[in-house]
């Protein structure tokens, strides 16, 4: 397979996953913000700050926006043309990548992605985003899930498909790690029993931004416990958004790509393998509040390195 094609498939998948993730994160955050009105001081600023950290973007300038800081925030992360990492920016790039490799994906995949793009581009639909953000973000998430379903249902499990999986799961692992890292840091000081309801709300939101709330509830009964959330999102063997699951899927995809390849430099493979075993055999105290940040930071760094290694290994861009 052409390196450029592999590269485009990888990034198509990554950008779409990123858009989906962003949509869910914004949706959950705005809901949460409604709940937190009057409880915490300047929630919009806090929200802007934490979103910026998770998304690794500069904090948006919100002053100029007429209809309030929250609308400004939504616009910035959803449509703002000068912010290439906004939802539309990600979707545009996912579509551009797909367009360059239309012969390598099924026509149904192209159709779904194209449809989603034009649907969100429609000014009428986009204007609804400010009135009912939920509908809009829901459409993004559904579109992405539909695309993944069509992809799995119509594509041969060839090298191209594996690169799509790699893009999806590496992006997912990265985003889950970032949410955990940032939120844990922010919520650490909610130790007071008085803060329990607030803590519960916040941690539920963390789960929701990974679509993990229901799965968590099915596993653990009762209040949402920060330590368990961390364990669940990091280490769960079969929840499709846990870091371990994502990395194991990535490693599987990589192994499938390399099955008949004559590759000596399997750096990406080795990096991924080590991260996975670190997760599998993690020491309990590494997950304690004092050390967690360091642990997550290390994981994030190694995931990034694995992704870079992958690209140089296959001469991707």
């Amino acid at each position: 397979m052409l390196s450029r094609v592999a590269d485009a498939l990888f990034w198509m998948s990554r950008y779409l996953e990123r858009a989906e993730h962003l949509a869910r994160l914004l949706d959950v955050s705005f809901h949460l913000e409604l709940d937190l009105r009057g409880v915490s001081a300047r929630p919009a600023e806090q929200l802007a700050h934490s979103l910026s950290v998770i998304l690794q973007q500069p904090t948006p300038e919100l002053n100029g926006h007429a209809s309030g800081p929250l609308a400004g925030l939504g616009h910035w992360f959803t449509f703002e043309a000068s912010n290439p990492a906004c939802i539309m920016g990600c979707l545009t790039r996912a579509r551009m990548n797909a367009r360059g490799v239309r012969g390598n994906i099924s026509s149904a995949m192209w159709r779904e992605l194209n449809k989603l793009y034009w649907q969100l581009k429609d000014p009428e639909f986009a204007s609804r985003a400010s009135e009912s953000p939920h509908d809009f973000y829901q459409a993004v998430e559904c579109g992405s899930l539909l695309f993944q379903g069509v992809c799995d249902a119509t594509m041969t499990r060839d090298e191209g498909w594996q690169f799509i999986q790699l893009g999806k799961y590496l992006e997912r692992a990265d985003k889950t790690l970032r949410i955990l890292d940032v939120r844990y840091h922010m919520l650490q000081n909610l130790q007071n029993p008085m803060d329990l309801p607030l803590s519960n709300l916040q941690w539920a939101a963390v789960l929701r931004s990974c679509r993990a709330y229901e799965a968590y509830q099915r596993t653990y009964v009762g209040r949402v416990d920060p330590e368990r959330v961390v364990e669940f999102l990091l280490l769960h063997e079969s929840f499709p958004r846990s870091v371990r699951f994502c990395l194991e899927q990535s490693a599987r995809a990589l192994a499938a790509i390399e099955a008949d390849a004559d590759q000596n430099a399997r750096q990406a493979d080795r990096l991924l393998g080590r991260v996975i075993s670190d997760l599998k055999f993690v020491e309990h105290d590494q997950l304690q509040p004092g050390r967690l940040h360091e642990f997550l930071g290390g994981l994030l760094d190694r995931c990034t390195r694995a992704s870079v290694a992958l690209q140089s290994q296959y001469a991707l861009r």
Binding site: L2, S3, V5, G103, A315
Partner: peptide, 29 residues
């Protein structure tokens, strides 16, 4: 046409000239 013929659709940057031959950059080298 590339799809109907089952051949690779390449852009200029996918190809490289070396040793008086043309090569394409693939994931396998």
């Amino acid at each position: 046409l590339a799809m109907r013929m089952g051949i690779n659709l390449v852009e200029g940057r996918d190809l490289v000239v070396d040793q008086n031959c043309v090569w394409m950059r693939t994931t396998r080298g």
